[in-house]
C-alpha cells in the first residue's frame, strides 16, 4: 500500500470521526436512567423518551415542529417548484438576477433575516403566530427546493416536451404527463430538505416565534441553557432517526424513478 493511500484512508477516517463523533456521543445518553446529561451511564432506560411524550412542554414542542414542518414543506415545495419552472423559460429577462435572489436566503446570515422578519412581522400582525414561523422557515427552505427541482428539470429534455405538444398535448397536459413525472424525484428531495430545514431551524424561530410556537429545536436550545436534562439527548435521538428516515425516502424515490426509466 502506497503512502498516499494510507494518508487518504487516515484522512477519511478522521473526517468521518469529526462529523459523526458528536452524534455517537449523544446517542447513548438518550437511554440513560440518570437525571444528568453526562457519562458514565449508570443503567439504561427509556424514561427520557417517556418524559418527551408526556411532559407538556416537550409534547407541544414535538407537535409544533410537525405542524410547522408540514406547513413549510407544502409552502416551500410549491413556491420553489414554481420558481424553478418559471426560471426554466429561457426567454425570461433577468433570469440570472432572479435565480440569485432565490438562492440568497442560503447565504444571508439567519440573524440578519431574523431581525428583519421580526420588525416586519410585528407590523403585519404575524409576530408570535404559527403563520409567521411557517413563513420565516419557508424563506430559508425555498432555496433547497429550488435547487433540487431546477436540477431535476435540467435533466428534462425540452424536445421531449415539444414532442408532447406536437402530438396534441396542451401546455397543461404536457406539464402533467411529461414534465411533472420527470421532475418528481427532484420535487420530493426538495420537500424532504424543506422539512428538515424547518425541523432544525432555531435562529429565526427565536426571533419570530412566541411561547406557543416553541419547536423541538427551540425547546432543546432553551433546555440546554436552563436545566441540562437527558431529554435533550432523547430529542436528538428522535431527530437523527427522523433525518435517516427522510434520507431513506429520498433514496427510495431516486431509486424508483431510475427503475421506472430502466424497466
Amino acid at each position: 500500500m502506497s503512502m498516499l493511500r494510507v494518508l487518504k484512508i487516515v484522512f477519511a477516517v478522521a473526517a468521518m470521526t469529526f462529523l459523526l463523533a458528536p452524534l455517537v456521543a449523544i446517542l447513548p445518553l438518550a437511554f440513560t436512567s440518570s437525571v444528568f446529561l453526562n457519562y458514565p451511564v449508570p443503567s439504561y432506560s427509556t424514561r427520557w423518551f417517556a418524559e418527551l411524550f408526556t411532559a407538556d412542554v416537550w409534547r407541544r414542542a414535538i407537535i409544533n415542529s410537525l405542524v410547522i414542518g408540514l406547513g413549510v414543506t407544502v409552502l416551500a415545495t410549491v413556491l420553489g417548484t414554481l420558481a424553478a419552472l418559471g426560471l426554466r423559460e429561457r426567454r425570461l429577462p433577468f433570469s440570472g438576477v432572479l435565480r440569485t435572489a432565490f438562492l440568497l436566503p442560503m447565504v444571508v446570515p439567519a440573524v440578519v433575516l431574523g431581525v428583519g422578519m421580526q420588525l416586519l412581522f410585528v407590523r403585519m400582525g404575524l409576530a408570535n403566530s404559527y403563520l409567521g414561523v411557517i413563513f420565516a422557515h419557508t424563506v430559508i427552505a425555498v432555496p433547497f427546493v429550488f435547487v433540487n427541482v431546477a436540477a431535476a428539470l435540467q435533466g428534462v429534455d425540452t424536445r421531449v416536451e415539444r414532442a408532447a405538444a406536437s402530438l396534441g398535448a396542451s401546455p397543461i397536459t404536457t406539464f402533467r404527463r411529461v414534465t411533472l413525472p420527470l421532475a418528481i424525484p427532484g420535487i420530493v428531495s426538495g420537500a424532504v430538505f424543506a422539512f428538515a430545514t424547518s425541523l432544525d431551524e432555531v435562529v429565526l424561530t427565536l426571533f419570530v416565534a412566541g411561547p406557543n410556537q416553541r419547536t423541538l429545536a427551540r425547546q432543546m436550545f432553551s433546555t440546554i441553557r436552563e436545566n441540562i436534562s437527558p431529554a435533550i439527548a432523547s430529542a436528538a435521538f428522535l431527530f437523527i432517526v427522523g433525518t435517516i428516515l427522510a434520507a431513506l425516502v429520498v433514496a427510495l424515490v431516486r431509486w424508483k424513478s431510475a427503475q421506472r426509466r430502466m424497466a
Binding site: R159, S166, A169, R177, V178, P181, L182, R260
Partner: peptide
C-alpha cells in the same frame, strides 16, 4: 400553438417519453 397544428413530428433526437413504455409513447 403547436398542440393545435395537428402535425406529426419526428424529431432529430427522437424525443421519446423516457418514463413511458413504447406502447404508451405511441398511444399518447
Amino acid at each position: 400553438p403547436p398542440h393545435r397544428r395537428n402535425m406529426g413530428v419526428v424529431f432529430q433526437s427522437y424525443a421519446l417519453f423516457p418514463h413511458m413504455t413504447v406502447a404508451a409513447n405511441v398511444a399518447f
